[in-house]
Design a protein around this nucleic acid. Structure first.
Lengths: 345, 345
DNA sequence: TTGTACGCGTTATCAG
DNA sequence: CTGATAACGCGTACAA
């Protein structure tokens, strides 16, 4: 900037004024400075710009688990869109369900002075944040934080799971399996709880052998479902509730070509319409948008106590969930595909 | 940092040494400083750190088109993984096929002093970059840049398309449609060229009515394919080549339940195995990894002239492409599903 | 309308 | 082993 000033025969401050479009600079001076900027190919340094205390970096931080999972892609897309609206940029990173890595990333982003930090927690305890990020608004998504009060946006996990299992019960099933992720995950525990609650409310004692946790990948879920299908008839489930998109996809692979087993999955997924898969649709896009909204609210000076938002779920019947225990359809699909990838909207 | 120094009774430089683990500080001094750091909850400012000239920001920039498209998610995941390996963070943004927006984002990221910039170009002309980013390594992915010499990583678009259409020709098809994205897109043009080349090589004169461009969403592709199916028998295609993942999904929806029409798609997608969809698999993960590799190579001082890399494609037969014009299978699937989302690996 | 001086938080230089 | 001081590039306060 000093070079530009020298080239134009003015002071740096005047150059600063022109760069930031501040008023009070003579047209002739402005022209001279712009010429100098072009000649010297000057480019403002936004890092230096945000260095002064009180200045913002105009950057949002987002920590998710896995870019390859469409659930997190949808969150990312929503957050990026919100950032863009506010002329913010987005630093993204994935923790891959590793609490240690989550911690490293949180620290790295705070050091980088993001103005706000959105986190899908990989670990259960966040006291390490302490006062480090006391001045940086934080919003937790999909799972609650541990030991810190902060804005949180969750799905209605238990409610959605209940809805799914009630749907299967209504179609006459008594032996309903639950395929879920690791019990270390909040969402898995909540959905399992919803599954159990629905069974109990339906007068059925949950069979522990039918609740299979620890399925973090589609491949693992596929194996688990195959195992269930291999059980003797009396112990075999007639319906399966899969507690997330990975599990649903694994179950679909396992059920392919086999005897008709009813299936309702948590999370919608692309092509579920074509495959006729009944799901309880979660709305990760909305969750991301809401989290970003809360973050910007805080940046606008909102100082209310931490908020907690719940995003509702919705059952979308497409056929796989409307099969009775005997394997025949007990009703027509009552829903429409409707769901589309964001790119199609 | 000055506060910490005062609290520990040392100079800022000594604090700096401790923070960065530099040698040559007495153990007792180190202990005193660490105590002060804890007491004052001091946190290093990485923005200030990278302010000095010659210092790097340890940040990579990545501009893609759309987070919701798994193709770009895979790229993002690969780039983030590489960044992580080098202890870099990643700023991501989506241009949504808008050249103006692409330009704004490039400028914003250069201002933010990313050490290298990876771009899936939305526009055809990149001369605007000029000398602005002359010192910032740039790598273009999926599509070439216009008017600037820079590292570029592309798929073998024409070759993959040829492979797909040759496969259909081998199964006896003569009327093969091509569903592609907008002709403004390099990949669409290249794949169209490959489609035509294969037809011509097979002794078939391409019917212009069967080459349908301008399908940017799955919904649009679905309509287009419906339109083709509604043609009188003589003009109707017996096979379809869809030139990207969105188009394939749209075509699948349109073909559902209808007369058997052979289908080969460009790009693999999740559940293609279950749906029995034959595809020419592209490897966006590998493309992202290669682009990141080139970027870090430049950061390591490599000054060779711009490189151009091509990522090969691979035909994966799953059934939909092995149907003859009469609608019967002309051979068994010769490939394995094999493909898994990154999350499953 | 324009300029001077200083501070932001850090690292590098060079002296002690 | 430790410290004083000068950058880095910009914005702000205040002066001219």
């Amino acid at each position: 900037m000093r070079d530009v000033a020298r080239h134009a025969g003015v002071s740096v401050k005047t150059v600063s004024r022109v760069i930031n479009g501040e008023p009070g600079v003579a047209d002739a001076t402005t022209a001279r400075i712009e010429e100098a900027i072009d000649a010297l190919r000057f480019q403002r340094n936004d890092l230096a710009r945000s260095l002064r205390s009180g200045q913002r970096s105009h950057t949002l931080g987002l920590i998710i688990e896995d870019f390859a999972n469409p659930f997190y892609s949808a969150i990312t897309q929503a957050v990026e869109a919100a950032a863009r609206e506010h002329e913010y940029l987005l630093i993204t990173a994935s923790a891959r369900e590793d609490p240690e890595r989550e911690r490293e990333l949180v620290v790295a982003l705070l050091r980088r002075r993001v103005d706000a930090l959105l986190v899908v927690p990989a670990g259960p305890d966040h006291r390490y944040i302490g006062q480090q990020g006391a001045n940086t608004p934080m919003v937790f998504l999909d799972r609650p934080a541990g030991g810190v009060g902060a804005d949180t946006v969750l799905l209605d996990n238990a409610g959605g799971a209940r809805q799914a299992v009630e749907h299967l019960l209504a179609h006459g099933h008594k032996r309903i399996a639950c395929i879920a992720d690791d019990a270390a995950l909040y969402t898995a525990r909540e959905r399992l709880a919803g599954y159990r609650a629905a069974l109990t409310a339906g007068g059925i004692t949950p069979d522990p052998d039918l609740a299979r946790l620890g399925n973090h990948t589609a491949a693992r879920a596929e194996e688990t479902v195959r195992g269930l299908l291999a059980l003797p008839a009396r112990r075999r489930p007639t319906a399966v509730f899969t507690a997330n998109n990975r599990n649903t996809i694994g179950a679909l692979r396992a059920l392919r070509g086999g005897p008709p087993v009813a299936l309702v999955g948590f999370d919608d997924f692309e092509l579920a319409d074509l495959l006729g898969t009944t799901v309880v649709r979660s709305d990760p896009f909305r969750m991301g948008a809401e989290a970003a909204r809360l973050a910007f609210l805080r940046l606008d000076g909102d100082a209310a106590r931490p908020r907690r938002r719940s995003i509702p779920t919705e059952l979308v019947a497409r056929g796989s969930g409307e099969v009775g225990p005997a394997g025949r359809f007990t009703g027509p699909p009552i829903g429409e595909p409707g769901w589309r990838a964001e790119a199609d909207r």
